[in-house]
Design a protein around this nucleic acid. Structure first.
Lengths: 245, 245
DNA sequence: GTCAGGTAAATTGAATGCAATATAATTAAG
DNA sequence: CTTAATTATATTGCATTCAATTTACCTGAC
């Protein structure tokens, strides 16, 4: 009866800025992004069911486009589709998380390698600036700020690779892991923190020298260390958290 | 033909509901796989429209599940969805192909690195066997056989990484590139062929020594060389091929 | 003959409807 | 009182339907 599409539903607030020229940010992508954010931000418990009708009302759409979006999210690995049993938000085991981090490590290593081929001096200067900003947060023990700038640095390196396919793939995996980050914000241990800071020194150094293979190696190992911390954290948290059937 | 995806979550055989035994592979995945193969095998011209109704009849389904599959294929990068203008099979530019090969290189490099951590002696022996089999094809100038075994070796290395996420991601990108391979089967130049054979010697050597970082490097560069050949090929072929709007 | 304008057919995007399956609620038996 | 069986409800998967946009076709003016 009511095709109640909120008049602001067409307003594109997401990414890439508002190109008056390029209008092709379709309604479907809008739904997809909103639903993805909804899940990534942890509004649905881990392993919990995704209530179609409820989300339909929330988004002001019918089931057809919602189910299309769910299929895409399933292919992205964010939810899993059980036959005749609907969608559940995918619960990551320690093993899954470990695999994801290793792939992230491979992608970041690749990004570093390619970045060394393409990065400009200005971009390196920008990353250096961020590096010292991050160092400041480290000294002040401001973990929140540190974490934010840290991610920004990694993002900058990926962008400097000048590879849009890599950029999209990286964003995809980052999204999957982000959900875990929301569920519990990585209380990084002190000793690991200092270690990570030293690793970032070597990252910057290799980047300055445009030492691609070397940077690739460093970045992979850097994420390997992050991986260990993350998996440990999930394990500890998993004990406290309730388990789904 | 044969999907070179071995046994991940998306591997399906094309049998319809005539399989009462194994029913857990959902109908949706079935449609998805069939449609993907249909496109990858080149039944629709590059950049051509994807006729919904026609495919519905071909697959014996209604538009709803077909459109769901198209959305997924779009997220995989195989087709692109134009608002109100339907789906077109995505035409890869030289630039796109180059980016894809670099990402493939990064993934294979990662696979090699992880394989060195996890591979068994038996698996190495198997790869050695394939290597010499491939060498035989090389000596006999049997490009078809060479190509087949070559892909198999790379596949084995990815499998030896023991990382299912990597395996699925690799399969995804391999699928995207496969379409280009169908459109014209890489007439590899002689000199490049010998070079590739030598590279494979070093790959095997590094694998035997479980030299992860080294193997990662070699594999990336190996794919870089493949990339150059592929892009050159697409460029030459693109001249002869029809151009899109 | 070419091009602009307008109308008709086709195609897309999304909502609704219906059969099939799973989940819950209830009842009956041990 | 607990547990198995049965019925009722809810949810899923897919087909059908409908409005909106696009594409093709046709007419007419220059």
């Amino acid at each position: 009866m009511k095709p109640l599409i909120p008049s602001d539903a067409t307003s594109k607030v997401l990414g890439a800025g508002t190109d008056p020229d390029r209008e092709d940010l379709s309604l479907h992508d809008e739904i997809l992004t909103r639903l993805r954010d909804h899940i990534v931000e942890g509004n649905i418990p881990d392993g919990g069911r995704v209530p179609e009708r409820q989300l339909c009302e929330m988004l002001g759409i019918s089931r057809t486009p919602l189910r299309e979006a769910l299929k895409v999210l399933a292919s992205e690995g964010l939810v899993e589709l059980l036959p005749n049993r609907g969608a559940r938000v995918r619960q990551l085991s320690e093993h899954d998380l470990g695999e994801l981090f290793d792939v992230m490590g491979g992608l970041e290593g690749l990004a570093g390698r390619l970045a060394c081929e393409n990065i400009t001096d200005a971009e390196i200067a920008e990353i250096e600036r961020l590096h010292y900003e991050m160092y400041g947060f480290y000294l002040h023990r401001d973990m929140h700020g540190y974490f934010r700038v840290n991610q920004l640095i990694h993002q900058k390196i990926v962008e400097a690779s000048r590879n849009t396919v890599l950029l999209a793939t990286y964003a995809n995996f980052a999204g999957r892991i982000r959900r875990v980050r929301y569920s519990a914000n990585f209380a990084r241990k002190r000793e690991r923190w200092g270690e990570a800071m030293r690793e970032h020194e070597t990252i910057l150094d290799a980047l300055r020298r445009r030492a691609g293979s070397e940077l690739s190696d460093i970045l992979f190992r850097h994420l390997r260390n992050k991986r260990t911390a993350a998996v440990e954290h999930l394990k500890a948290d998993g004990m406290a958290g309730a388990e789904p059937a």
